[in-house]
């Protein structure tokens, strides 16, 4: 069974014919070739699929595409600002918060959700906000450094 799915994706209105049983993750990756959002586990176990829906973090692998009809969805591809890395992406790059990069889109989106609601989080708050995102490379230390750096940059802007 398929219906028209209408939503805003990274700032642009989209209308696509999408089967009802399509996960948001598959709609993004297979339907729209937006492969920045990752499939890392069997469902809800790793956070690599984190996107934003109306500014809130959301696991795309545990969300039906039609479940976010009419909402504003943001993926890592939408983080770019005028062709340049945004402050979180740049902070991850400059502080080595990213090694293999697989967890990075999910980490950045979860951090973005945090900074929108709390622009000056302390390290423990960042830790709690990203506790649902697994990383296998960094041991998390430089990810925390990166989010702190991005928050500092934004605060001094």
């Amino acid at each position: 069974m398929k219906s028209i799915l209408s939503l805003t994706l990274n700032g642009r209105l989209r209308e696509d014919v999408v089967p009802h049983n399509t996960l948001l993750l598959d709609y993004l990756r297979d339907g729209l070739q937006l492969t920045g959002t990752k499939r890392g586990c069997d469902g809800g176990e790793c956070g690599a699929c984190t996107v934003l829906v109306d500014g809130q973090p959301r696991l795309a692998c545990s969300t039906l595409a039609h479940g976010v009809a009419g909402r504003h969805v943001e993926t890592i591809e939408g983080m770019r600002r005028s062709g340049r890395l945004d402050r979180l992406q740049r902070a991850f790059h400059e502080n080595l918060g990213t090694q293999c990069g697989f967890c990075t889109p999910g980490m950045v989106m979860a951090a973005e959700a945090l900074l929108r609601s709390n622009p000056t989080p302390d390290r423990e708050t960042i830790r709690s906000a990203l506790a649902g995102n697994l990383c296998r490379c960094t041991g998390y230390v430089k990810i925390l450094d990166a989010v702190e750096a991005a928050a500092r940059e934004e605060a001094s802007a």
Binding site: S128, L134, G139, V141, L144
Partner: peptide, 17 residues
């Protein structure tokens, strides 16, 4: 055989290094 039972530490219990 999944990332829930194979427990990779989360940021919550990972220390400063």
């Amino acid at each position: 055989a999944n990332l829930l039972d194979y427990r990779v530490p989360t940021m919550a219990e990972s220390p400063e290094i």
